[in-house]
Design a protein around this nucleic acid. Sequence first.
DNA 1: CGTTGAGTTGACCATCGTCAACAGGAGTGG
DNA 2: CCACTCCTGTTGACGATGGTCAACTCAACG
Lengths: 218, 218
Amino acid sequence: MRPYSACGALEHDELAKLEALSRSNCYAQRQQLFAQDEDAHSVYNITSGSVRLYRLLPDGRRQVVGFAIPGDFLGLSLAERTVYGAEALTSVTVCRFDREQFSSFVDEHPQLLRRLYDLANHELSLAQEQMVLIGRRTAEERVICFLVGLRKRWSHINNNSVTVPLPMTRQDIADFLGLTIETVSRAISKLARERALLVVPDGVRLLDVARLEAVAAG
Amino acid sequence: MRPYSACGALEHDELAKLEALSRSNCYAQRQQLFAQDEDAHSVYNITSGSVRLYRLLPDGRRQVVGFAIPGDFLGLSLAERTVYGAEALTSVTVCRFDREQFSSFVDEHPQLLRRLYDLANHELSLAQEQMVLIGRRTAEERVICFLVGLRKRWSHINNNSVTVPLPMTRQDIADFLGLTIETVSRAISKLARERALLVVPDGVRLLDVARLEAVAAG
DNA sequence: CGTTGAGTTGACCATCGTCAACAGGAGTGG
DNA sequence: CCACTCCTGTTGACGATGGTCAACTCAACG
């Protein structure tokens, strides 16, 4: 795990010190990294695989608040308790840090803290984007935004491919977009019928990228 | 403006230095503090009045991403550009800081930065809460959650009164909850008919707090 | 070859959005 | 003082988007 994109603020030797605090770790598909509302032990950096982040209402309704892919961090809030659960969508490998140790390291490196602060504010902006998506867009628009946005996130990793991996189930997508599984399925089928995309095993291939990105932007 | 709740990390003399950087400022009702996607000049601390924060889609659809009340900060992300607009719902007074100066001050006070970091992560958690609200709750539940949540925020200011000030229009509430003005109006009317609340000028008085809070929690 | 679980599709329906009419206050001007 | 307009909010009738329920396909797996 070299990039440490969140840690660009660190000098080489500081980076080495941080790396010394980390432990590599694996999770099987469907295994939980951590649950909602439990004590937070660790900070995670995903090195391979995908993770879903979700919140539950007491009556069982679920909202997926995000998906983590390689390079993403979890638990950076450094809060004592988790506010969402995290579950492996595929088999997952992570670099894990002890939360207390990581927190102390951060306190000793204000430049890193400043970088994390900017990162958190960027996340906040994305969360607001998601509010607009769920609150003010139609079902088809939500699905398109989801696919286009996910492709953009993968583009750094898979060389800008038009094939978007979808390791999550339709249920996960639905719970992310505030829809039902059937509505997501219908939206994807409609786009496939219109030759805007092609459904492939464990993903979709975007065919009419221009059209899809126009809808996502509009 | 004494509380500086965000600045509890500062010593008395440091607080004084920060205060020296601030300028008091007024805005008339409907006046814009700043627009979406413009250069960010300032950091604001609301001292009186209410502000709506909103994002616009290119086609004019609007999502209100939050309301700011006395004690709240705006522009703390310290990003170069604004990601949402802010408009005064009532006449508003603020303490305004130059963004660059504030940013430098923060860089010289890691303890303050750490406090701001925790604050940003708390905001992020609230944004996720809002995603659950918009994505997975019914119209009536959304309205109830909104009222109960707003009451809680005002409780520090107005001595835990069951009367919730609503300086925003129904349109603002609708755009916050991902609903229409008519649906918000109907939900409030229904709750009033059921004696769960009472509509008063520029607000509502919660009558059956237990019931409302139960719905909001569930 | 049967079972299971994900995904798709269809028929029907409910919630919420749309459109329209109306009520009530605030501001304006005769 | 009384129209008159304007704006916000309320209410009703109707309709569409998306949810519900159910049947079916298909692949994975034992």
